[in-house]
């Protein structure tokens, strides 16, 4: 019975994922423009750090530059977003569904999030392939292509962690009018603490130690380091275990906050 239910849930997620992907491909011009602008930003970042590297800035190595590009790609495609706030607040015009619509159809926020963010994995894949090609042309660094396998695992982990974080942030809308500010504050915290702006190894020791106790390093730093650095099997296992632990914690927090939020929503006659 339990297995049957899990099978049904998985089927639902995959169905919504396919629908989300199809929707994103429907507006091809927007998708193409988005990918183009991300390439542009990547080239800008490369240009900025390459200028500093030529000047002889000590910490700006080829590996550093590739890290910056990959971390940006992850942070800006699989980014924290809080569109679920609009669902809770029923803002956005007649075309946007509201929470009542989702409740009636028994669509969970996670399923909705999977659908609305399916395009992000597609754009990340395209941008990642571009970075690989760019690295092959410019010969910035040589890395072990076998690392792509664990990299894919950690990127998927990042995708689900960010999905849960996005929802947790959106749930502030149950209690606050301008929950956008929470979302933005979280986005800023995560941009920095995930290693999206700078690799964590360049930061002061006390900050590195503090951040090692938080799940945010799994949102950019760990996936990129898994790709660029050599790890032993023990280290991989340890990183997986901690990552899955955070996934479980955030999943539980997501369920708890949603239930609490629904109580408030329903008590107001939503």
């Amino acid at each position: 019975m339990f297995l049957e239910q899990r099978k049904k849930s998985l089927k639902n997620y995959l169905l919504f994922f396919r629908i989300g992907l199809k929707n994103s491909l429907y507006y091809k011009s927007s998708l193409i423009l988005e990918i183009f602008f991300t390439f542009f930003v990547l080239l800008f970042l490369f240009s900025f750090w390459e200028t500093l590297a030529k000047e002889g800035v000590s910490f700006v190595t080829s590996s550093f530059i590739v890290y910056i590009l990959l971390a940006f790609a992850i942070n800006n495609t699989l980014y924290l977003e809080w569109s679920f706030i609009d669902i809770i607040k029923s803002e956005g015009g007649t075309a946007v569904k509201d929470l009542t619509y989702l409740l009636i159809r028994n669509i969970s926020p996670f399923t909705y999030n999977v659908k609305s963010r399916a395009w992000s994995l597609l754009t990340f894949t395209i941008i990642f392939l571009f970075i690989l090609l760019f690295n092959a042309i410019t010969k910035l660094i040589s890395f072990n292509y076998w690392h792509i396998l664990p990299f894919i695992f950690f990127v998927l982990l990042t995708y689900f962690l960010i999905s849960y974080l996005s929802l947790i942030v959106s749930y502030f809308a149950f209690w606050f009018d301008e929950a956008w500010a929470f979302g933005y504050a979280f986005f800023l915290i995560i941009s920095f603490t995930s290693g999206g702006m700078l690799p964590l190894y360049i930061m002061p020791d006390w900050l590195q130690t503090t951040l090692s106790f938080l799940p945010f390093q799994y949102l950019a730093y760990i996936p990129v380091q898994v790709l660029l650095e050599e790890y032993t099997w023990k280290q991989y296992a340890s990183l997986c275990a901690v990552g899955l632990f955070w996934l479980f914690v955030l999943g539980a927090l997501n369920t708890f906050l949603y239930k609490q939020g629904l109580k408030k929503f329903e008590s107001q006659g939503g």
């Binding site: 200028t51 500093l52 000047e55 800035v57 000590s58 910490f59 606050f176 301008e178 500010a181 929470f182 933005y184 504050a185 800023l188 915290i189 941009s191 920095f192 702006m197 700078l198 360049i202 930061m203 002061p204």
Partner: peptide, 28 residues
């Protein structure tokens, strides 16, 4: 909340540059 968000932003931006200038006195 907005004030908190924007204060965080400027704090992280300054932290970003401070970390860079800990390693070098000038950048270009």
């Amino acid at each position: 909340l907005f004030l908190l968000a924007f204060s965080l932003e400027i704090s992280f931006t300054f932290l970003f540059w401070k970390i860079l200038f800990l390693n070098e006195n000038t950048l270009n």
